[in-house]
Design a protein around this nucleic acid. Structure first.
Lengths: 239, 239
DNA sequence: CATCTTATGTCAACACCATTGACGTAATTC
DNA sequence: GAATTACGTCAATGGTGTTGACATAAGATG
């Protein structure tokens, strides 16, 4: 796993306790920290699914009492935000905006989507949240900066950054939750476009009948890049 | 409540039992059925909020033992899908595509989104799934038909329908899962744009510093209509 | 009308879940 | 070496979905 920027004081401002000095090993010997907990949680979700993120299972995986986690995070929601921010940081590793703002936003969008797809189960629960943490600040800064450099007014830069990032996050989350489905369920969904939809009576569904041959092919892939380009295309015209 | 098309046999194929003949009144006198349960669940969510959809509370609202629900639905997930199907039907009630395909698609998008927002918890779970049911067929037929009438080739009509509907569903789901959050959590997320983001050092985050005054306002609302227009604008240009 | 069958409402119980408060002890500080 | 306290542990509370046994009313059969 690549190094993820974990931020500085700004990140820790709302942690349960500030600077840690005393660390007491758990019964099983491991020494806890926020980072250890987040890493373990990400691995747990990736391996067992989103529903495995419970304080009890996390405690078991960490080898500590479940309630020890509350010494580091105020609630499971607080922990969830930390996990989400970890994800954002992972997607930003190595990213540098270039002079072409459209191309740069496009790459940012593709990166976020790739990062989310790499941890679909985390993405499905975290996409809608505002993490209020370091890595999210960095992403907002980059995106808004690109739109400002494109020539948008401050108000429009914020407005269109929101439209852009929500589109990316929304599609990423949708795709992620689809990826997270059980393989046989997903396969059945894919097949339905050639099976179920191909058997619909043409009299009742003339349009579906007309495009019948293209359904399976076009519905199988992801529309993400299409949508990204549609949105960026309109943005470029509005600047 | 308006009449919602409940479909035919295809819908009922996976019900717990087939044709019901015997109906025994509950302790409180009401007679149960799948439709009664779904209606009650929808009302419950609408009235008491998202977190009210539990078998116990639903049982209380129906005036029956919570476990009676399992005579009609295999699990709460099964119930959720039935509710989702009901929802899709609801969003389509009274919808008629007009001669202007852009305006018609726009209205379809807004309708789907409104329907989802009215029951956010259901939407958050159901958006990623392909229901393969009656009301989904109707929606696909309408959308593809509109794009064909616009002049797109069959292949492009399918491709862009996918881009369009995924954008609508993805944003609706994102917004819905945000709406489904506990009120105090959502309030904290909202506040963060004026609080946390306004206190970030301008030296480290120059772009955020520049747009500071617009953050709270622009981030508070929904970018849905903006995105819808951005996508439709590009589509109209590509036809 | 009487009897049989069974659909289905009810009940108790189980195994989870997040979260809180009290408690003891080990780690740091002085 | 004593004092302080961070923090891991434990017990308990009140929520959740779900299952299996049980009982009884509705409908079928005669």
């Amino acid at each position: 796993m690549e190094h993820v920027d974990r931020g500085d004081q700004a990140d820790r401002a709302d942690r349960v306790v500030g600077e840690r000095r005393r660390r007491r090993p758990t019964k099983s010997g491991t020494v806890l920290s926020d980072d250890v907990i987040v890493d373990c949680a990400v691995r747990l979700i990736g391996h067992q699914g989103a529903e495995a993120l419970t304080v009890r299972k996390l405690g078991a995986a960490l080898g500590c009492d479940p309630t020890a986690i509350y010494r580091y995070f105020r609630s499971t929601d607080d922990l969830l935000l930390a996990i989400a921010d970890f994800l954002i940081g992972e997607t930003l590793v190595g990213y540098r905006p270039g002079p072409d703002w459209v191309a740069s936003l496009r790459e940012l969008g593709l990166r976020v989507r790739d990062g989310y797809l790499r941890h679909p189960r985390v993405a499905a629960i975290a996409a809608a949240r505002v993490t209020r943490r370091h890595n999210e600040f960095r992403a907002v800064e980059m995106g808004v900066s690109l739109l400002l450099s494109a020539g948008f007014s401050p108000a429009d830069a914020v407005r269109y950054y929101r439209a852009f990032i929500d589109t990316v996050l929304a599609h990423a989350a949708l795709e992620a939750s689809y990826t997270a489905l059980a393989p046989e369920v997903r396969a059945a969904d894919d097949r339905s476009w050639e099976e179920t939809y191909n058997t619909l009576p043409k009299a009742d569904y003339p349009a579906i009948g007309t495009v019948r041959r293209h359904l399976a092919e076009e519905m199988a892939g992801s529309p993400f890049e299409d949508v990204l380009d549609l949105v960026l295309e309109s943005l470029a015209r509005r600047v």
